[in-house]
Nucleic acid binder design. Structure first.
Lengths: 141, 141
DNA sequence: ACGTTTATGTTAATGCATTTGCATTTGCAA
DNA sequence: TTGCAAATGCAAATGCATTAACATAAACGT
Protein backbone atom coordinates (compact mmCIF):
# COMPACT_ATOMS: atom_id res chain seq x y z
CA UNK A 1 0.00 0.00 0.00
CA UNK A 2 2.49 2.65 -0.99
CA UNK A 3 1.21 3.96 -4.26
CA UNK A 4 -1.02 6.99 -4.56
CA UNK A 5 -4.37 5.86 -5.82
CA UNK A 6 -7.60 7.75 -6.19
CA UNK A 7 -9.36 5.30 -3.91
CA UNK A 8 -6.74 5.56 -1.20
CA UNK A 9 -6.95 9.35 -1.30
CA UNK A 10 -10.74 9.24 -1.15
CA UNK A 11 -10.68 6.88 1.82
CA UNK A 12 -8.16 8.95 3.70
CA UNK A 13 -10.07 12.11 2.94
CA UNK A 14 -13.34 10.61 4.14
CA UNK A 15 -11.84 9.71 7.49
CA UNK A 16 -9.94 12.96 7.93
CA UNK A 17 -12.95 15.04 7.02
CA UNK A 18 -15.63 13.28 9.05
CA UNK A 19 -16.12 14.68 12.53
CA UNK A 20 -16.87 11.24 13.86
CA UNK A 21 -15.60 7.64 13.65
CA UNK A 22 -16.76 5.89 10.50
CA UNK A 23 -17.70 2.27 9.93
CA UNK A 24 -16.24 0.62 6.81
CA UNK A 25 -19.49 0.93 4.89
CA UNK A 26 -19.74 4.59 5.88
CA UNK A 27 -16.25 5.12 4.54
CA UNK A 28 -17.33 3.37 1.37
CA UNK A 29 -20.40 5.56 0.96
CA UNK A 30 -18.41 8.74 1.42
CA UNK A 31 -15.52 7.67 -0.76
CA UNK A 32 -17.89 6.69 -3.54
CA UNK A 33 -18.96 10.30 -3.95
CA UNK A 34 -15.44 10.76 -5.32
CA UNK A 35 -14.68 7.33 -6.77
CA UNK A 36 -18.02 5.71 -7.67
CA UNK A 37 -16.67 2.26 -8.51
CA UNK A 38 -14.99 1.96 -5.11
CA UNK A 39 -15.34 -1.48 -3.59
CA UNK A 40 -15.71 -2.50 0.04
CA UNK A 41 -12.72 -4.85 -0.17
CA UNK A 42 -10.58 -1.90 -1.17
CA UNK A 43 -11.83 -0.01 1.85
CA UNK A 44 -10.86 -2.86 4.14
CA UNK A 45 -7.46 -3.25 2.54
CA UNK A 46 -6.71 0.42 2.95
CA UNK A 47 -8.09 0.64 6.47
CA UNK A 48 -5.74 -2.15 7.47
CA UNK A 49 -2.79 -0.51 5.75
CA UNK A 50 -3.53 2.89 7.25
CA UNK A 51 -3.73 1.32 10.68
CA UNK A 52 -0.32 -0.26 10.17
CA UNK A 53 1.03 3.12 9.07
CA UNK A 54 -0.43 4.63 12.19
CA UNK A 55 -2.50 7.29 10.48
CA UNK A 56 -5.86 6.00 11.65
CA UNK A 57 -7.11 4.43 14.88
CA UNK A 58 -9.77 1.81 15.52
CA UNK A 59 -12.78 2.68 17.64
CA UNK A 60 -14.68 -0.18 19.18
CA UNK A 61 -18.00 0.27 20.94
CA UNK A 62 -19.98 -2.34 22.85
CA UNK A 63 -21.84 -4.63 20.50
CA UNK A 64 -20.66 -2.74 17.44
CA UNK A 65 -18.18 -3.61 14.75
CA UNK A 66 -15.09 -1.47 14.26
CA UNK A 67 -15.10 2.18 13.29
CA UNK A 68 -12.14 4.31 12.25
CA UNK A 69 -10.93 7.82 12.98
CA UNK A 70 -7.77 9.89 12.45
CA UNK A 71 -5.01 8.97 14.83
CA UNK A 72 -4.05 12.50 15.73
CA UNK A 73 -6.99 13.18 18.04
CA UNK A 74 -6.47 13.87 21.73
CA UNK A 75 -7.83 11.52 24.39
CA UNK A 76 -11.59 11.48 24.12
CA UNK A 77 -14.65 9.29 24.36
CA UNK A 78 -17.74 8.56 22.31
CA UNK A 79 -21.45 9.05 22.18
CA UNK A 80 -23.72 6.75 20.23
CA UNK A 81 -27.16 7.97 19.25
CA UNK A 82 -29.94 5.51 20.03
CA UNK A 83 -31.83 6.94 17.08
CA UNK A 84 -29.45 7.03 14.12
CA UNK A 85 -26.75 4.84 15.64
CA UNK A 86 -24.08 7.30 14.60
CA UNK A 87 -21.08 7.74 16.83
CA UNK A 88 -19.82 11.17 17.86
CA UNK A 89 -16.64 12.24 19.59
CA UNK A 90 -16.90 13.63 23.10
CA UNK A 91 -13.99 15.71 24.26
CA UNK A 92 -12.99 16.31 27.81
CA UNK A 93 -12.38 13.53 30.29
CA UNK A 94 -11.72 13.94 33.97
CA UNK A 95 -10.32 10.55 34.77
CA UNK A 96 -11.74 10.20 38.26
CA UNK A 97 -13.30 6.84 37.65
CA UNK A 98 -9.96 5.13 37.64
CA UNK A 99 -9.77 4.79 41.38
CA UNK A 100 -12.57 2.44 42.34
CA UNK A 101 -10.79 -0.75 41.33
CA UNK A 102 -10.09 -3.58 43.77
CA UNK A 103 -6.63 -3.68 45.30
CA UNK A 104 -4.13 -5.60 43.23
CA UNK A 105 -5.73 -4.39 40.01
CA UNK A 106 -3.79 -2.09 37.70
CA UNK A 107 -5.65 0.25 35.38
CA UNK A 108 -3.89 1.00 32.11
CA UNK A 109 -6.64 2.69 30.11
CA UNK A 110 -10.37 3.09 29.87
CA UNK A 111 -13.24 3.47 27.44
CA UNK A 112 -16.37 5.47 28.06
CA UNK A 113 -19.43 5.37 25.86
CA UNK A 114 -22.45 7.58 26.32
CA UNK A 115 -25.83 6.72 24.84
CA UNK A 116 -28.85 8.86 24.16
CA UNK A 117 -30.13 11.03 21.34
CA UNK A 118 -28.02 13.30 19.20
CA UNK A 119 -29.10 16.80 18.28
CA UNK A 120 -30.59 15.68 14.97
CA UNK A 121 -32.63 12.93 16.61
CA UNK A 122 -33.69 14.86 19.71
CA UNK A 123 -37.42 15.04 20.48
CA UNK A 124 -37.56 18.84 20.12
CA UNK A 125 -35.82 18.83 16.81
CA UNK A 126 -38.04 16.09 15.51
CA UNK A 127 -41.17 17.81 16.78
CA UNK A 128 -40.20 20.88 14.80
CA UNK A 129 -40.23 18.75 11.70
CA UNK A 130 -36.95 20.23 10.58
CA UNK A 131 -35.68 16.90 9.32
CA UNK A 132 -36.36 13.23 9.03
CA UNK A 133 -36.55 11.18 12.23
CA UNK A 134 -33.36 9.43 11.30
CA UNK A 135 -30.47 10.59 9.11
CA UNK A 136 -29.78 8.91 5.82
CA UNK A 137 -27.25 6.39 7.02
CA UNK A 138 -28.95 4.65 9.96
CA UNK A 139 -28.39 1.50 12.01
CA UNK A 140 -24.73 0.96 11.34
CA UNK A 141 -24.00 -2.69 12.13
CA UNK B 1 -38.64 -22.53 28.90
CA UNK B 2 -40.85 -23.08 31.88
CA UNK B 3 -39.92 -26.53 33.07
CA UNK B 4 -37.36 -27.23 35.75
CA UNK B 5 -34.47 -29.03 34.14
CA UNK B 6 -31.11 -29.92 35.54
CA UNK B 7 -29.37 -27.92 32.80
CA UNK B 8 -31.46 -24.84 33.42
CA UNK B 9 -30.69 -24.99 37.13
CA UNK B 10 -26.99 -25.46 36.45
CA UNK B 11 -26.93 -22.51 34.07
CA UNK B 12 -28.76 -20.25 36.46
CA UNK B 13 -26.55 -21.31 39.32
CA UNK B 14 -23.39 -20.66 37.31
CA UNK B 15 -24.44 -17.11 36.57
CA UNK B 16 -25.73 -16.37 40.04
CA UNK B 17 -22.63 -17.76 41.69
CA UNK B 18 -19.96 -16.21 39.50
CA UNK B 19 -18.70 -12.86 40.74
CA UNK B 20 -18.27 -11.65 37.19
CA UNK B 21 -20.09 -11.65 33.84
CA UNK B 22 -19.73 -14.94 31.99
CA UNK B 23 -19.44 -15.66 28.29
CA UNK B 24 -21.62 -18.49 26.95
CA UNK B 25 -18.73 -20.94 26.84
CA UNK B 26 -17.76 -19.99 30.39
CA UNK B 27 -21.31 -20.74 31.47
CA UNK B 28 -21.03 -24.03 29.64
CA UNK B 29 -17.79 -24.95 31.37
CA UNK B 30 -19.18 -24.17 34.79
CA UNK B 31 -22.52 -25.84 34.20
CA UNK B 32 -20.80 -28.97 32.96
CA UNK B 33 -19.30 -29.55 36.39
CA UNK B 34 -22.88 -30.32 37.37
CA UNK B 35 -24.37 -31.63 34.13
CA UNK B 36 -21.50 -33.07 32.05
CA UNK B 37 -23.47 -33.67 28.88
CA UNK B 38 -24.60 -30.05 28.73
CA UNK B 39 -24.54 -28.60 25.23
CA UNK B 40 -23.70 -25.08 24.11
CA UNK B 41 -27.00 -24.78 22.23
CA UNK B 42 -28.82 -25.41 25.48
CA UNK B 43 -26.82 -22.66 27.10
CA UNK B 44 -27.79 -20.23 24.37
CA UNK B 45 -31.45 -21.23 24.50
CA UNK B 46 -31.56 -20.72 28.23
CA UNK B 47 -29.61 -17.48 28.18
CA UNK B 48 -32.15 -16.11 25.75
CA UNK B 49 -35.07 -17.31 27.82
CA UNK B 50 -33.61 -15.96 31.04
CA UNK B 51 -33.08 -12.61 29.39
CA UNK B 52 -36.70 -12.54 28.34
CA UNK B 53 -37.72 -13.42 31.89
CA UNK B 54 -35.55 -10.59 33.12
CA UNK B 55 -33.44 -12.63 35.48
CA UNK B 56 -30.15 -12.01 33.70
CA UNK B 57 -28.64 -9.04 31.90
CA UNK B 58 -26.34 -8.85 28.90
CA UNK B 59 -22.94 -7.24 29.26
CA UNK B 60 -21.29 -6.02 26.11
CA UNK B 61 -17.73 -4.80 26.03
CA UNK B 62 -15.88 -3.23 23.10
CA UNK B 63 -14.78 -5.85 20.61
CA UNK B 64 -16.14 -8.68 22.73
CA UNK B 65 -19.10 -10.96 22.32
CA UNK B 66 -21.86 -10.95 24.89
CA UNK B 67 -21.46 -11.92 28.53
CA UNK B 68 -24.19 -12.46 31.08
CA UNK B 69 -24.73 -11.56 34.71
CA UNK B 70 -27.59 -11.57 37.23
CA UNK B 71 -30.04 -8.76 36.66
CA UNK B 72 -30.31 -7.73 40.28
CA UNK B 73 -26.96 -5.94 40.49
CA UNK B 74 -26.76 -2.23 41.20
CA UNK B 75 -25.39 0.21 38.62
CA UNK B 76 -21.76 -0.67 38.01
CA UNK B 77 -19.08 -0.93 35.38
CA UNK B 78 -16.50 -3.42 34.22
CA UNK B 79 -12.82 -4.13 34.17
CA UNK B 80 -11.25 -6.42 31.60
CA UNK B 81 -7.86 -7.92 32.32
CA UNK B 82 -5.39 -7.59 29.46
CA UNK B 83 -3.79 -10.80 30.66
CA UNK B 84 -6.55 -13.34 31.17
CA UNK B 85 -9.30 -11.43 29.37
CA UNK B 86 -11.70 -12.04 32.21
CA UNK B 87 -14.22 -9.35 33.05
CA UNK B 88 -14.75 -8.14 36.60
CA UNK B 89 -17.43 -5.93 38.09
CA UNK B 90 -16.40 -2.50 39.34
CA UNK B 91 -18.76 -0.91 41.81
CA UNK B 92 -19.10 2.74 42.49
CA UNK B 93 -19.72 5.29 39.77
CA UNK B 94 -19.72 9.04 40.18
CA UNK B 95 -21.53 10.06 37.06
CA UNK B 96 -19.65 13.27 36.40
CA UNK B 97 -18.77 12.44 32.84
CA UNK B 98 -22.30 12.97 31.69
CA UNK B 99 -21.93 16.69 31.27
CA UNK B 100 -19.44 17.19 28.50
CA UNK B 101 -21.84 16.45 25.65
CA UNK B 102 -22.58 18.95 22.88
CA UNK B 103 -25.74 21.01 23.28
CA UNK B 104 -28.79 19.32 21.84
CA UNK B 105 -27.54 15.91 22.87
CA UNK B 106 -29.42 13.93 25.51
CA UNK B 107 -27.59 11.34 27.57
CA UNK B 108 -29.69 8.38 28.68
CA UNK B 109 -27.04 5.97 29.96
CA UNK B 110 -23.37 5.17 29.80
CA UNK B 111 -20.88 2.34 29.77
CA UNK B 112 -17.43 2.47 31.26
CA UNK B 113 -14.80 -0.19 30.74
CA UNK B 114 -11.43 -0.20 32.46
CA UNK B 115 -8.50 -2.19 31.14
CA UNK B 116 -5.31 -3.34 32.83
CA UNK B 117 -4.17 -6.32 34.85
CA UNK B 118 -6.21 -8.10 37.46
CA UNK B 119 -4.77 -9.18 40.76
CA UNK B 120 -4.00 -12.68 39.54
CA UNK B 121 -2.19 -11.40 36.46
CA UNK B 122 -0.37 -8.48 38.11
CA UNK B 123 3.42 -8.29 37.69
CA UNK B 124 4.11 -8.67 41.42
CA UNK B 125 1.87 -11.66 41.75
CA UNK B 126 3.41 -13.29 38.73
CA UNK B 127 6.93 -12.51 39.89
CA UNK B 128 6.18 -14.31 43.14
CA UNK B 129 5.34 -17.38 41.15
CA UNK B 130 2.22 -17.96 43.18
CA UNK B 131 0.25 -19.05 40.17
CA UNK B 132 0.23 -19.51 36.45
CA UNK B 133 0.66 -16.40 34.28
CA UNK B 134 -2.88 -16.81 33.02
CA UNK B 135 -5.88 -18.46 34.72
CA UNK B 136 -7.35 -21.61 33.27
CA UNK B 137 -9.99 -20.03 31.10
CA UNK B 138 -8.14 -17.40 29.06
CA UNK B 139 -8.85 -15.26 26.01
CA UNK B 140 -12.61 -15.34 26.01
CA UNK B 141 -13.70 -14.42 22.49
C1' DA C 1 5.63 5.61 -23.88
C1' DC C 2 6.83 1.03 -21.76
C1' DG C 3 7.13 -2.47 -18.62
C1' DT C 4 7.08 -3.99 -14.18
C1' DT C 5 4.82 -4.21 -10.06
C1' DT C 6 1.26 -3.07 -6.94
C1' DA C 7 -3.65 -1.93 -6.12
C1' DT C 8 -8.34 -2.67 -7.45
C1' DG C 9 -12.84 -5.03 -8.54
C1' DT C 10 -15.30 -9.18 -8.20
C1' DT C 11 -16.61 -12.94 -6.13
C1' DA C 12 -15.90 -16.66 -3.34
C1' DA C 13 -14.21 -18.12 1.06
C1' DT C 14 -13.28 -17.59 6.24
C1' DG C 15 -14.05 -17.34 11.05
C1' DC C 16 -17.16 -16.90 14.76
C1' DA C 17 -21.00 -16.33 17.49
C1' DT C 18 -25.48 -17.67 17.50
C1' DT C 19 -29.60 -20.30 15.79
C1' DT C 20 -32.34 -23.98 13.94
C1' DG C 21 -34.19 -28.75 12.55
C1' DC C 22 -35.10 -32.91 14.24
C1' DA C 23 -35.00 -37.20 16.72
C1' DT C 24 -34.78 -38.36 21.52
C1' DT C 25 -35.35 -37.56 26.37
C1' DT C 26 -37.55 -35.63 30.30
C1' DG C 27 -40.73 -32.90 33.35
C1' DC C 28 -45.01 -32.95 35.04
C1' DA C 29 -50.17 -32.96 35.06
C1' DA C 30 -53.82 -36.28 35.03
C1' DT D 1 -47.69 -44.71 35.46
C1' DT D 2 -48.80 -42.91 31.39
C1' DG D 3 -48.96 -39.50 27.74
C1' DC D 4 -47.67 -35.46 25.73
C1' DA D 5 -45.77 -31.06 25.36
C1' DA D 6 -41.52 -28.90 26.16
C1' DA D 7 -36.28 -29.29 26.49
C1' DT D 8 -32.15 -31.24 25.21
C1' DG D 9 -28.21 -33.02 22.34
C1' DC D 10 -26.24 -33.12 18.13
C1' DA D 11 -25.13 -31.43 13.77
C1' DA D 12 -26.01 -28.60 10.22
C1' DA D 13 -27.29 -23.97 8.93
C1' DT D 14 -27.27 -18.73 9.48
C1' DG D 15 -25.73 -14.09 9.51
C1' DC D 16 -22.08 -10.83 9.46
C1' DA D 17 -17.86 -8.70 9.30
C1' DT D 18 -13.65 -9.40 7.31
C1' DT D 19 -10.23 -11.66 4.11
C1' DA D 20 -8.28 -14.19 0.20
C1' DA D 21 -7.83 -15.50 -4.95
C1' DC D 22 -7.11 -14.04 -9.13
C1' DA D 23 -7.59 -11.62 -13.47
C1' DT D 24 -7.49 -6.71 -14.88
C1' DA D 25 -6.18 -1.95 -14.48
C1' DA D 26 -3.50 1.77 -12.87
C1' DA D 27 0.97 3.93 -10.84
C1' DC D 28 5.51 5.36 -11.55
C1' DG D 29 10.59 4.67 -12.35
C1' DT D 30 13.25 4.29 -16.56
Amino acid sequence: MERDTRQRAAIRSAIETAARPLAPHEVLDLARTTVPQMNLATVYRNLKAMQAEGIIAVVRLPGESARYEPNHLAHHHHFQCDGCKRVYDIHGCTGEMLHSVPSGFLVARHELTLYGLCDACSPQRRALGKLRPVPSRPATT
